[in-house]
Amino acid sequence: MILSSEISFWIALTQIPRWGNVKVNTLLQMIFEKEKIGLEDFFSRSVQEWKEKFGLSEVDCENFTAAKNELPNYSFIAEDLLSQGFEIIPITSSDYSSTLKENLNPLNAPPLLYIKGNKKILQESSLAIVGSRDASEISLQFTDKIARLASKQYKVVVSGFAKGVDKQALDSSLKYKGQSIIVLPQGISTFGSGITKYYSQIIEGDVLVLSTFFPKSPWSVQLAMARNPIIYGLAKEIYVAESGNEGGTWSGVLDGLRKKRNIFVRKPEAIEKNANNILIQKGAIAVDFDGNSIPFQYEEIEQKQLVFAEPKNISKETKYPQQENLFK
């Protein structure tokens, strides 16, 4: 657990202009692992030390000084959030999702999670179901099926609260009395209507709402895109119900493949118009309607005259090297 007086430092750190996750996490490593001090201590050091010990640039130092002056302001915001039942989980906390850290090569993982609901869900085995907003009936049925399997195997379903597949994943997961993580494309305090809708599941501990953005941020395309890697990162397995050849799902899967994730794509029927086969060709694993992988279906695809390559078999070792004891 972090001290409550540290929360404002965490928020300040994530609000430094033009500082992405990697920069923030690298600094955190220096603070916590190399220097073995706390955030509050770091902020109280001189500009000189910031430069020499922590490698901050002149501009960084200006920005950090400004952030330091804003600490009391962040305390006001934090108090407001906490009193509304939101929780703030920093990357150094044992409540933080280890799956997310592992999948995102810790340096890319968001330094702060804003959540509401049962945070223990973050420690469960998990799978994500993703797909288009205007998915076909068959994709939705597939989603339903995977959600049912997940529930049976006590796996948490991670989804992104968009229309179509996301929404189906969530609703089916709840229908089968499973647990779900909703990953928001917006700040957590702008999600009132969603909270009302899933209120009873949230208070019963079956739904966790999670956002990695500044709490008041409204929905935006950028945030929706930025959220995709979080969905993938929170899940041990990723199932794609349906993807077009552009848009969020498409780029999300490609990004996942680049990161050498195992991504299971529903093998489409011959008549379907979507890009599922292309993703399979690009390295995703084809699965049937029950989510079982189907390794021997090349001919069929060749008959349809689609370019196709054998999906690579990816072993755990080829992932980013695990950085031990990071943020422990």
Binding site: E40, S75, S83
Partner: peptide
């Protein structure tokens, strides 16, 4: 009650 929570969240040198 909320004011106390706020005070707890303020940086200790404030």
């Amino acid at each position: 009650r909320r004011i106390i929570n706020l005070v707890k969240l303020l940086p200790t040198n404030f």
